[in-house]
Write a protein that binds this DNA or RNA. Structure first.
Lengths: 238, 238
DNA sequence: CGATGACCGCTGGAGCCCCAACTTTGCGAT
DNA sequence: ATCGCAAAGTTGGGGCTCCAGCGGTCATCG
């Protein structure tokens, strides 16, 4: 409306509107730079800039030699589902029930905890282990990236093993009593972009999960999920 | 490493590294376009482009006439906290306990449900009401934007009122038995950018909350939260 | 008839330039 | 010592151009 707005914004907003209201469905081609200059009566710089902004937002994707297209954004599939007494979160089973195979890959390497991890585990900045999991769908598409920090003594490779180690460590009768998750969103780090095969402009959901045994935190993990393809489900009885 | 990489990326990656490893703390000035061209031996286009990319990622912020600065990113404050039997989520109380006042503003207008809302409430695309809440901190900073869709008959203005209306509507003994939340992240719509006062490149956390009474969905709301300032906490007993 | 290559259009990188609007700074005058 | 103002620096919008690399299309040649 305001004619004082930069002209490239006029282009951005017009195309964005067409994408969000469905006029331009996923996969539809966006006019090329040359076409945009003619259509909106703007210079090539403005046309190019508009395309770059839209691509940066993750709404369109440019294929060199071909053109810009509205990005496919499949319906968000639930990645894992929290349900009362339904722990640990069986997201793999969830996906398998949808007919998708899930494969794992991991790579462990010991590391000192950073200050934030130490704070979360209420530990000095030592005696920790970093384990990075890569989780893939059967078709090879990446699902998530998880890094967990545990007391080094707890470095076990199955949930069962770990739980019994926890039990040994903390004496008899130790039991995870509460799981706290904190969700926020941020730009992916370069490693995450690679591992999760993220397009430009896609943010990640960062879930910090901490397992508590009474008033003692036992294990904490960072779960990183592509924000454009997945959702995290929480379900609580009232 | 690969010298075939575009030069602007070299600049981006170098600055990004300095920001993430703390060499450039929040608030620190970034070299200007002219300085970058000299420092990295690149053209003005590349320098400018690097700054734009970093700004688009939300890592730096440009102030015209002054320069670019590392964005202040205060520690993420918990926005609301889910706890078993601690419903409805008392995020206002949570913030107040931190010495922050919270104020509300809302604006109601009836609307037909879109197809997705109808699906969530298992309703025909009618008989709904849209209510948009704006929630502010005492200092005027925006906290979140929530839009809830309820059966029109349930349009009440307090949680208590609404609950009793729900009870009347569905007969005696009706009770919300489960709350399901789904979290994902996406780029903000223009309204949300304005209402939440979002900087460029900041994504939002989108929480879809649905209240269930047995196998019947009763109310659903979309809660939109600035992804760079807040986190959502979930806490579950095991 | 089928394969090969030339050609055109498109993206993305990169360079240089001009200008308006704004901030900061420093100098000079009161 | 303080005020005001001008100059210098900086961002953001916008313009133009060149080029490499890629992807189709289409015509030509074997």
């Amino acid at each position: 409306m305001a004619t004082s707005d930069p002209v490239y914004l006029r282009v951005v907003e017009d195309i964005r509107r067409q994408i969000t209201d469905g006029t331009l469905p996923p996969g539809a081609p966006i006019p090329s730079r040359a076409q945009l200059t003619r259509k909106y009566q703007v210079g090539e710089t403005a046309a190019r800039h508009a395309l770059r902004v839209l691509a940066g937002e993750g709404l369109i994707i440019g294929r060199v030699g071909s053109g810009h297209y509205v990005r496919e954004r499949p319906d968000l599939t639930p990645l894992y589902r929290w349900r009362f007494l339904d722990h640990p979160a069986p997201f793999a089973a969830d996906l398998q029930s949808q007919g998708r195979r899930v494969t794992w890959d991991w790579h462990s390497e010991p590391a000192e905890a950073g200050p934030d991890i130490a704070r979360r585990l209420r530990l000095p900045e030592s005696a920790t282990l970093t384990k990075t999991h890569y989780v893939f769908r059967g078709d090879g598409k990446p699902l998530q990236l998880a890094t967990s920090y545990e007391l080094r003594e707890f470095a076990a490779h199955s949930d069962e093993e770990r739980r019994s180690l926890v039990a040994r460590m903390y004496g008899h009768g130790i039991k995870i009593t509460e799981i706290v998750e904190s969700v926020h969103t941020r730009i992916p780090r370069p490693v995450e972009s690679d591992a999760l095969d993220l397009a430009a402009g896609v943010h990640v959901l960062h879930v910090e999960r901490t397992h508590w045994a009474g008033d003692r935190p036992v294990e904490t993990s960072d779960i990183v999920i592509p924000g454009d393809r997945f959702r995290v489900m929480y379900s609580m009885p009232v």
